[in-house]
Design a protein around this nucleic acid. Structure first.
Lengths: 191, 191
DNA sequence: TCTCAAAGTGACAGTTGTGTCATTTTAACT
DNA sequence: AGTTAAAATGACACAACTGTCACTTTGAGA
C-alpha cells in the first residue's frame, strides 16, 4: 500500500557527497539537499532527524565502501604488491580524507548520532588494523625502515594524496614521483 | 579628541585566529568575535564592512608575519641549512596551511575583498618564489633528485606537517623521523 | 570645564536555516 | 472502484546571523 519513494537512500547520499565536499559541514543545509533531490525540505526529515544524523549516516555508507575495498589488501601476499595496491586505493578514495575531517565537526547530540559516531570510530580502527598489518609485513620483510614510527609511515602515505597538483603535472608522472618519494625520498644518494 | 579604543587590531586578530581554526569559515560569526572581545557586535562593523573583509584582512596580517619569517631563508647559504630552516618554519607555522584552505572559501564580493584576495595571492606567489629558489639550489648542489617535479617536492615538505601524531610520539622523534622520511623515504636500502 | 568627534551601543528589519505537523497525494492491495 | 498507509508537502514558529543607524558614552584638547 506504500506509495513509491521519490528517491532512494543511495540517490540521497550521492547528492550529499558534492554538497558536503564543496560547502563543508556548516555550509551543508537541508535546503540545498532538498533542492538537489527535487523534493520538499520537510521530506528529508522523514528519514533523518537532523543534519548530524544524516551526515554521520552518510559517512558510514561511504566508509563501508572504502573499507570493503581496502580489505582486499589482505589477499595480496607480498609487500610490494600491497604497497602498489595501497597507492592505487588512495588515489581512488582521495576525498575520504576530507570527509573524515568534516565528520570531526559533528558534535554528538542525539543518541543516534552518538551511535553513528561510535560505529565510524570502530570502522576507522578496523581499517587502521589492516594497514598496521601492512606495515608489519613490510618491516618483517626488511622492506621498511624498522625505526620509523608506524603511524608516521601510514600518515605519510595518506597525506601524499592531498598534495595539490597546481601545475597540472600528468597523472602518471605524478603518481610515479610520489611512489619514488615515499620509497626513497627526495635526496639524491650521491654520498 | 578621540575616545580610547577598547581593542586594537592586533587584539582582534588574536581572537579571530582560534575562532576561525575551530569553527571554519561558515562557523565564524561576528557575534562570536564580539563576545570574545567583550564588545557589541555593531562595533566591529566600524572597522570591517563584513565577514569576508575581516577574514581576508586577518589573513594578510597572518601571512605577512609568516612571509617575513620565511624570507630569512635567503640568508642561509647552503642547502642543508635551508632544509633545516624550512622544517623548523613549517612546524612553527603549522596552521598556516589550514588558514589558507579556509581563505579559499571567501567569495570575492566587495571591491575591498577583491583587493585583499589579490594581495594574498601575490604574497603566496612571493613565498613560493623563495621556496622555488630553495629547490633550485638543492638541485644545483646535487642534493635533490633532478627528475622530481619541484611542486611535488614542495608539496611533500608542506604536507608533512599535517600528518596527525595521534599516538603522541615525542616531538623530537617525530621531527627527526619526518626529516629522514623526506630525505631518504621509508624503504630500507637493502638491495 | 566644555566641546566634539571618534568609539561604542543596542534595537530594528531582513535573510536563511531549523524542526514540526496537519494536510494532501499517491499507488499497491482489496 | 474504494481503502489505506506510506510518502510528500508547505506553512508555522523559532532561532541565529547579518547589516544599518540613530543614539549614547568617553576623554583629549581648547
Amino acid at each position: 500500500m506504500a506509495r513509491e519513494r521519490k528517491f532512494s537512500l543511495e540517490e540521497l547520499y550521492k547528492q550529499v557527497k558534492p554538497l558536503l565536499l564543496n560547502n563543508g559541514y556548516e555550509g551543508f543545509t537541508f535546503s540545498h539537499l532538498a533542492d538537489a533531490l527535487n523534493v520538499a525540505r520537510g521530506t528529508i526529515y522523514k528519514y533523518f532527524e537532523n543534519k548530524d544524523e544524516l551526515i554521520t549516516a552518510y559517512m558510514i555508507f561511504e566508509m563501508e565502501q572504502s573499507h570493503k575495498e581496502l580489505q582486499q589488501i589482505s589477499h595480496i601476499s607480498d609487500f610490494n604488491g600491497q604497497f602498489d595496491f595501497l597507492i592505487t586505493f588512495m588515489f581512488q578514495n582521495s576525498n575520504l580524507h576530507r570527509l573524515i575531517e568534516i565528520g570531526k565537526q559533528v558534535q554528538s547530540s542525539t543518541e543516534v548520532v552518538k551511535k553513528n559516531k561510535q560505529r565510524l570510530m570502530e570502522m576507522q580502527i578496523d581499517m587502521y588494523k589492516h594497514l598496521q598489518d601492512f606495515i608489519s609485513l613490510g618491516k618483517q620483510e626488511n622492506m621498511l625502515k624498522p625505526h620509523l614510527p608506524d603511524t608516521l609511515i601510514l600518515g605519510y602515505i595518506f597525506q601524499s594524496i592531498a598534495i595539490p597538483n597546481h601545475f597540472g603535472i600528468p597523472q602518471s608522472v605524478w603518481v610515479s614521483s610520489i611512489k619514488e618519494m615515499l620509497q626513497s625520498g627526495m635526496f639524491a644518494h650521491n654520498n
